[in-house]
């Protein structure tokens, strides 16, 4: 038995009470993150990937939201944890990077001040010592002339530089888990490359675990060890990166990968997934993908469990299709 995972999520559910009934944004999500592991969560807008993270971190303050299930971090339950205790954890043991660094930083304080604030919230250090650490952190994430730049305000940085500041801040207290929510989506491709390399380098250096949320299969391929594919609040496929990207097993993952333009296929038609993702109010009985799945059968009116259907025991998917037929069926889509 390997060491206990750092984070163990079991049957996580987020439900919103709305005028038109209850909406399940996250619908029974279970996964683990090992120490030093990079877990990628990929899904389209509205698949619940960000919502799952927010609910774990206690960032859902919507009074109509109900979070149930369990998320154990180093053995401690996060769901329902009282706020003071959660505050000690957030920013120190678990840190988060958001998609838009401009809105995640406060515009009225210098970036150095913001990093110092975080350090001093969690540790008893003098402000001089904290300031020194802030400069060292900014330097480490590749901000030139860090001592001077620490006195700059967020608007004086470019998008990529702001994201570096966010990363510096998230690393301030050496978190064991870093949650990155679409950290490169707002950035240009050359800057995205820089940020991905930075996250990878720092991850290797400090051995933190990372949860990388993205809609981009390419980013997942670059950085993740294991991948969860989410659809309509559920995990439909879970496996090692190469397993999922090279030999995906769920029809949704087939469609997702087929829809990406590839080099050398110029002008050819892209495989598409017909229709649209289910809306929040669509009925949630059975497999959520069945209305768009060309292989839908009678069994699909019941939700399949996430389980191994192929040879690899650690490559799971939630689909009723027989394991052996998958390869030829996938060929039909491509």
């Amino acid at each position: 038995m390997p060491a206990a995972p750092l984070l163990e999520v079991d049957d996580l559910r987020v439900a919103f009470r709305t005028r038109d009934g209850v909406v399940n944004a996250v619908n029974g999500l279970s996964f683990t993150v090992g120490r030093g592991e990079v877990l990628g969560i990929v899904g389209e807008s509205g698949s619940g990937k960000s919502m799952a993270m927010y609910s774990m971190m206690g960032l859902l303050d919507n009074p109509n939201a109900t979070v149930t299930g369990s998320a154990r971090f180093e053995g401690t339950e996060l769901i329902g944890m009282p706020l003071p205790k959660l505050n000690r954890l957030r920013g120190s043991s678990i840190a988060m990077i958001f998609q838009d660094p401009m809105t995640a930083l406060t515009p009225v304080y210098t970036v150095g001040w913001q990093i110092v604030e975080q350090i001093r919230t969690h540790e008893k250090v003098s402000s001089q010592a904290a300031w020194k650490r802030a400069i060292a952190l900014l330097d480490e994430v590749g901000i030139p002339d860090a001592a001077r730049r620490a006195k700059s305000y967020p608007h004086e940085f470019s998008g990529g530089m702001r994201q570096r500041v966010m990363i510096a801040m998230s690393l301030a207290c050496h978190p064991s888990l870093l949650i990155a929510d679409e950290p490169t989506t707002a950035l240009d491709v050359t800057t995205q490359r820089q940020i991905l390399e930075l996250i990878r380098d720092l991850q290797a250096k400090y051995g933190s675990s990372v949860i990388m949320i993205t809609h981009d299969m390419g980013v997942i391929s670059e950085i993740a060890d294991r991948v969860i594919v989410m659809y309509a609040g559920r995990a439909v496929e879970l496996g090692g990166k190469s397993q999922v990207v090279r030999s995906p097993r769920h029809p949704y993952t087939w469609g997702l990968l087929g829809a990406i333009p590839r080099p050398g296929q110029r002008g050819q038609r892209l495989a598409t997934i017909p229709g649209l993702p289910p809306g929040p109010h669509d009925d949630q009985i059975g497999c959520p993908f069945r209305s768009r799945c060309r292989f839908a059968m009678d069994e699909c009116s019941e939700m399949p469990q996430l389980r191994a259907t192929g040879e690899a025991a650690d490559h799971l998917d939630a689909c009723w299709l027989s394991g052996d037929a998958r390869k030829s069926l996938r060929g039909e889509i491509a």
């Binding site: 050359t190 490359r193 820089q194 390419g218 980013v219």
Partner: peptide, 22 residues
């Protein structure tokens, strides 16, 4: 070279050039 490549599909194999700065 900055385009994220899908796993096992890095063809043509490109030398990775990471630009510095903005």
């Amino acid at each position: 070279s900055a385009i994220p490549q899908l796993d096992g599909e890095a063809e043509p194999e490109r030398e990775r050039i990471v630009l510095t700065g903005d």
